[in-house]
Design a protein around this nucleic acid. Structure first.
Lengths: 248, 248
DNA sequence: TAGTGGTCTAGACCACAGC
DNA sequence: CTGTGGTCTAGACCACTAA
């Protein structure tokens, strides 16, 4: 009879999660973990359907979601590829207004003030949200020979052990991390502060000058990657952000 | 023959947009426009399938997307309903730290300092992004009898004409707008400033005190709704934001 | 218990971009 | 021209829950 045809799913597999979710989690995991770095070609729908023993429609639904989420890019005939994430700066941007005014080609450099590998102190462990070994870096960024940002960063060495050997000569720690961990979540806390003596000295301003501080904590799948405090001197720096009630 | 059965789509309708997109835009439009306010029950999948002359699977795909986007909420047996948007404060929160410290139940009030209906000046038209009549409101918010926010707001009367008659006695302009226009997009620009004389007077602080300013512009489908400048005195106020590399 | 959403299929046609 | 993604269907079974 056609009874067996009517029940296409295998009844002896109760499957807690939906097939959707299983496939989605699988593919998403490979992308977020970096196992499939940006540019990687993802198998064709037909192949995936065979691998997961399901219909192409089911795979297609997952791929549609991944594409809508911006994790992959699809082109007819060519195939499907892991997308390079638009960095957070696309939606959350630190604008240096003097830089804007002086247009392009401002000479930029930065210097590392200190670099330390250690177990975190209690406050640092709380700040980062992890208790394992950390890399603590303090540095200054300059634009047009003027200091424009003081950076105090903790990096979770258990998640990013390569950071231990990295000299950060070419890329600043932030830029290097973005290249290493392209997909991540971030929490921001922004406030105005009056410069204390240390900050004032480092940023060549007077104590009490208004500054903008940004505390950012970055995680990937809820695992802390890095925690950074950025201090921008004076009133010429601006954070811009954009929130959309979800594009579809 | 079964040839006609093999081609279920009507060939004389070339349809530029996919059926997906058409249905999605339709439903999305009714939700965003407020024609279907939060809580409204959306027709059942079967009914929608009949209305749009398509299969339930097609409708289901759209509904799944709307649900993933947070615009609707679905419950088995009960049906599908327009969701009340979690306000932007859920992802972008202005934290008053003294309020947190003093826990719940701080006495709150606010006062309107000025209220003006007029055509916008050039700078205001640019700030709002619209040239029609505006309602300009200046007000102060207090917590525990201390001023904690100075607000300077423009409202686009062409989009929200009801604001003209609204006394804002119960709800502050911001809260009132959220109730009127639940779904909107927002751009933020945040910076540290030194209080000028006017701000210092209004917030009962000394000139030059660091303050946090937030400029927010709110749009709905790219049409400006309101532009507001918020100034928080001192260093005890914090903006927190959260960015996720897109949840799926 | 009945009815809704949730999932899945096997197959079909189409549009488009690489080859 | 070939193969990929894009779309759509008619129907099936399942899971949950409100009534």
């Amino acid at each position: 009879m056609s009874a067996t045809e009517i029940r296409p799913r295998n009844p002896q597999e109760p499957q807690r999660r939906s097939l959707h979710q299983t496939i989605l989690d699988d593919l998403k995991g490979r992308i977020l973990s970096g196992k499939w770095p940006p540019g990687t070609q993802i198998p064709f729908e037909q192949d995936l359907a065979r691998q997961f023993a399901c219909s192409r429609m089911t795979v297609n639904k997952v791929m549609t979601q991944l594409a809508a989420a911006g994790l992959i890019e699809r082109r007819r005939k060519a195939g499907t590829f892991v997308k390079r994430p638009q960095s957070h700066t696309a939606i959350m941007t630190i604008v240096d207004i003097r830089s804007e005014v002086e247009a392009l080609g401002l000479p930029y450099h930065y210097e590392i003030l200190s670099r330390d590998i250690r177990m975190p102190r209690a406050a640092e462990a709380e700040r980062l949200g992890a208790k394992g070994r950390i890399l603590a870096i303090v540095c200054r960024h300059f634009a047009a020979r003027q200091p424009f940002c003081f950076e105090d960063r903790l990096i979770n060495l258990e998640l990013v052990p390569e950071a231990e050997k990295e000299p950060f000569e070419i890329l600043s720690p932030g830029a290097w991390l973005v290249s290493k961990v392209p997909w991540s979540d971030a929490e921001y806390r922004i406030r105005a502060v009056a410069a204390d003596d240390e900050i004032a000295e480092k940023l060549l301003i007077e104590s009490g000058t208004p500054c903008l501080t940004i505390k950012r904590r970055t995680t990937i799948d809820a695992v802390p990657v890095t925690a950074v405090n950025l201090t921008y001197p004076g009133t010429d720096h601006e954070v811009s952000a954009r929130f959309t009630s979800r594009a579809i």
